[in-house]
Amino acid sequence: MSTSRKPRRRFRRSLGERIAERALALVAASAIGAITLILVFVVREALPLFWDGHEGLALAAPHRYPNYDHPVYVWQPVGYPPKYGVVPLFVGTLKITGLAMAISTPLSLLAAIYVAELMRPRRRAWIKPIIELVAGVPSVVLGFIALTYIAGATQDLLGCTYRLNALVAAIALSLAVLPVIFTVAEDALHGVPLALREASLALGARRYQTVTRVVLPAALPGILAALVLGFGRAIGETMIVLMASGNAAVLDPSPTSSARTLTATIAAELGESPRGSEHWRVLFLLGMILLLITWALDAVGRIVVRRLARRLDPSTDEGA
């Protein structure tokens, strides 16, 4: 090495500099530490179920409880015997998030198209922040809004049997998810280069053709990322569904029947279950399942988004 003849110490970074870098790296590792700890300490409370045995837990299949003549899907932690059939909770979660996505996806994407494509820049500059502000509204406030306004309004309109039900929760959940999808999707649409729009219009395309054939496809990765983000937020949302869904763990696909989600179950029941009991462990298991669902969603979402981006532009950078 040609540098080896130089007196090495002269240009070396000072000890302080090197310590600072190490220290910062150590602090940065705390993010990794945090996610590891979360996993470890949720799993730690849940896993004993699998070696200490469990009585009433049924993750996927229906379970035949004593005094029942056939296997059932039931979540009834305070019954005798306690029944921890998780399927009704899955169904409830899917029902409410599915409904919420069905409401918020078209609304937020269409609104994003209007703001990104048809609105004057000046107006866009103040309408976007308004919707972004809604993204910051605490979910407990949205839950409260669901109880006070949405529940009554839907009951009047649809004549639901139960005041609180999956639809009420889904509408309130849409309010939480909508601004998230809107903001990210609008950014994606807005980021499509002007040159592509001009090329399309110069070829004699109409505005709507330009939007559907050029802008939307080019923004698709970003739009998809927006939907994945929104879906993740919807699945993980707790307070809204806890307050508005009615919380009955029933196996009923009807949107106006009550529903109980994974998150609301944990929030409602952990406070009353003794530490180390089967109930307690099952609730941590639900948390673990939630973690896995959101991770899987994130991972699948990223892969799909990256594939799509690469298909649009094969020179797309790997790490992007």
Partner: peptide, 12 residues
């Protein structure tokens, strides 16, 4: 971390 549901933070 950003995607972890808030109730799971409660458990943690």
């Amino acid at each position: 971390l950003a995607g972890v549901p808030s109730i799971v933070f409660g458990l943690f």
